[in-house]
Design a protein around this nucleic acid. Structure first.
Lengths: 214, 214, 214, 214
DNA sequence: CATGAATGAGCGTTCATTCAT
DNA sequence: CATGAATGAACGCTCATTCAT
């Protein structure tokens, strides 16, 4: 199965039982995202978040122990959402009879595509969240993607070059490191290029040439 | 020529004329670095910087218009220092009669080496400084490295595969994007691996297989 | 008559008619006591009281106009309880044919005994509740005890020294002031000593030597 | 020697070097006292203290790590001031050729006198400060007074009744416990009586009759 | 009636910056 | 020039209380 449930309770002081509560929490998380994107990390403060979410500051603290927990949930939701999107994208793009080269191209497109929908948020999170001590995010993000890709590649190890006998795991690792590395630096400098097909293909080619037999 | 002068005046309220002023500025910049590395961005505040530098807060504001300017100079110096180091490293490692494959390996090592001397500072800057609006840093860093590498590769375009006729510029771009991407994500997750030779060689192989003729 | 009815209605928004209401009120008062003893005055907040009492915050405000009223009732009940205990204790300990000296010793023991059952609550109330504006408590407490004692001493004025012709009222005043004074300062510093019999006897001796004939 | 130096540094973040700093600290401490007396503990908040002291809130936090430290210094100064006053008062009132009875009367007057100059502050501190966790204050206060009195009584043990052979220490203990007890409860109920000479004399008589030979 | 989600004034504290000495 | 005392806007957070359901 692709994607896994998110343990939101970890970030919440009490489980929301009514729809009203859930709406409040959603509004708070979305306000956090919005402010982060529009004003950067410096603008993210609890009073402003509450105001923007249309609730009082007291309400925020009914559901979240502190600012960190709220930001944590936002990040968690973002990462989880991207994993779901990645899973769905892979499901659509891949078929078992594809050869490895084609598959690599599709994997790269799928990976980049997850950052195209809300590139400003991807970027803002990448830039700002580490600064607030949520370093693990990037790692979790990377690790979960790696697992998805490894699964997708499971039956293709026969098409790898010599020296890559360990097969899918290693390819997944290389692929994810290179692709995420490129995504990260692109997000930081010129995120429009993430939508450039030629750029994607070039990146896929980088991976393919690395793993194909000589 | 490798490396270019740094326009420090851009960050300073007045040009330091005596050695004493220069010492004060150096102390402030170094204190900023130290605090950033030891306590993260959250610990970087002007009062603490001044205290650690052994000067009064008033003195800090004699030389810098605001906190941003001081941080800016620190970053600028760091990037410039790395460029000089990279230039020197390339100068040592490269010779004109190397073939392209060997050169790629040396280039990758040179690029990674610049982050090995003060990896905590590289990492801290990457993680924390963008958050304070110094986004350009990474780009400047990347761009300057790209120029250095392009220069080094100038006469090797004959050894590239077809489809890379544009030669050195493109290779430099790919190389720098991939390598920096990997460096960035490694700094964020597991910076000890930056010193792992096998890791460096694998990265060089990635690049080499991308650009070599079929 | 020993002890008088407590006017609980003064603290309640509406008279509880069913047992269920009375249980709710009791639970709230007891939760308040518990929290005060365990966490001090700082821990006493209405949300926590309601939670600990197992009712909703809204219910608390159905019965009490505000926090002060709830605390007031708790204090009132405590003081009233102590008066009843003191009355009962005197009833047990005293008999009409005792001489005054013996009576003094028994009175002192009775007074101290009322603070031995829940010394932490006595202490917590003494320390924390005045701070919230319930100053009168201590006076009421003292005054009611004085009345009880005065009654007990009514027929002993013949055994007093000269200069104490006013008899029981003055002795009661001195006794209560000295004993409560000592109880108060002992509660604040070293409440274990309240159970020390030698300590009680010394205190009784203090009073006795004061009032006895030369 | 009567009275001992106060370790104010324990409460301050940095030693005040200029008169200006000392004035600021004094203003803050006095503002704290004033607010405590006028509005009770509930009115004591750092913003108001700063405002009333005529300085900015930032200045308060230049000298005090937190609210507790400021309150601590105020209490410390008050207790120390009272000790000095008590010492001076004893010095004036006592002479070596006094008999014990006279001495007891003077001691009681001296003890009560220290609470007559600023009875509202004595009372406010007694009522409010314990509630904020500074319980030790009362004990320190009592203990220091006990030492002063013990010293004053040093050569009078010959005039005690049998059973008080331990002499001065025990008398000092009894005296201080009874007198402070009475002072405490009087402060809480009717502090005007602290100035009532007949009341003082009655209290002295209580003590004297306790310790005198039969 | 009971519930508990929501409110918001106000608290303790921080830190970039100014300015009298 | 250097100093460091002073400033004050703004932050994270609490808790007594209200009110729609």
């Amino acid at each position: 199965m692709l994607g896994e449930g998110v343990d939101e309770a970890r970030y919440l002081l009490k489980e929301p039982k009514q729809q009203r509560s859930r709406d409040t929490i959603d509004a708070l998380v979305e306000a956090t995202e919005l402010i982060l994107v529009e004003e950067g990390w410096a603008g993210v403060n609890t009073n402003r978040i509450a105001e923007r979410a249309g609730v009082s500051i007291g309400t925020l603290y009914q559901y979240f122990e502190n600012k960190e927990a709220l930001v944590g949930l936002m990040v968690e939701r973002f990462v989880a959402g991207q994993q779901v999107a990645l899973g769905a994208s892979l499901w659509e793009r891949l078929s078992e009879d594809m050869d490895l080269e084609r598959m690599i191209f599709e994997l790269v497109r799928a990976l980049m595509w997850t950052h195209q929908e809300r590139p400003e948020l991807s970027r803002a999170l990448l830039m700002h969240v580490p600064a607030s001590g949520q370093l693990g995010v990037v790692n979790v993000w990377t690790e979960r993607s790696r697992v998805l890709i490894e699964e997708a590649l499971r039956f293709k190890s026969g098409e790898l070059r010599e020296g890559m006998e360990e097969g899918a795991p290693l390819v997944a690792q290389v692929l994810i490191t290179a692709v995420h590395g490129v995504i990260f630096s692109t997000l930081m400098s010129d995120w429009e290029r993430l939508k450039d097909e030629a750029f994607m293909d070039e990146l896929a080619r980088l991976v393919w040439r690395y793993i194909r037999p000589d």
